[in-house]
Nucleic acid binder design. Structure first.
Lengths: 102, 102
DNA sequence: ACAGGCAGTCAACTTTTTCTGACTAATTGA
DNA sequence: TCAATTAGTCAGAAAAAGTTGACTGCCTGT
């Protein structure tokens, strides 16, 4: 996605919009909104999504600080993705989008 | 963009998100938010944007009823794009996105 | 020891999106 | 009459995003 500099094109909303765009990000966000999500769970949940797509969506959302990756040191040792503070701040906006769309 | 059926993938916000996604749509929306916009004005304003990109963004946003195309019967006869009712209902969400991003 | 789940990565291919440049067609001002 | 402006369209190329399938490496249960 080649982010970072990008000149921002004087449209601040564009950045957030991009961060939630893409074929699977809204669904990942929506899933993470309810409870922490895991890679293979998403793969099963989002029918038609490839490992690649999910991996790069998660990576981008992590880089943009929408979600946080955590290694859980429990019996079977797994990884969880949860909404970051910034991610949680987007929830009300996401809800409003759902209301308008519905 | 192949819209219409699409199964909605049980994520209602996705639709709105898509309608405002793309390289130039957020900026077009932002511009139309202030005052009616015109094709060639956008072409000058959005540096780097091609005619094609602007034309298809406008067409899609019109099809999705975010903006409305009007032929203005004045001296030089031109075309204006303004936010539709639905478009205006998105304004507060857009503003919130700007606030979070800024 | 082996199978299966988890969490990925990589290369090759396809699809979608965007850009470039040429072209159309009506109107207007010099 | 000629050039410019407005509002596009079209084909082809390039870039970005997504999919497929193979492969890795760790851990756990049998």
């Amino acid at each position: 996605m080649e982010n970072g500099s990008e000149a921002q094109s004087q449209c601040p909303a564009e950045s957030l919009l991009k961060q939630l765009s893409g074929k699977w990000k809204p669904q990942i966000f929506r899933s993470a909104l309810k409870q922490p999500v895991r890679f293979n769970a998403l793969l099963r949940e989002l029918e038609g999504a490839s490992k690649q797509a999910i991996a790069s969506a998660l990576k981008e959302m992590e880089e943009q600080d929408l979600i946080r990756k955590t290694i859980i040191n429990e019996k079977p040792l797994h990884i969880e993705y949860t909404l970051s503070e910034k991610g949680r701040s987007v929830i009300p906006i996401f809800k409003q989008l759902e209301n308008l769309a519905g």
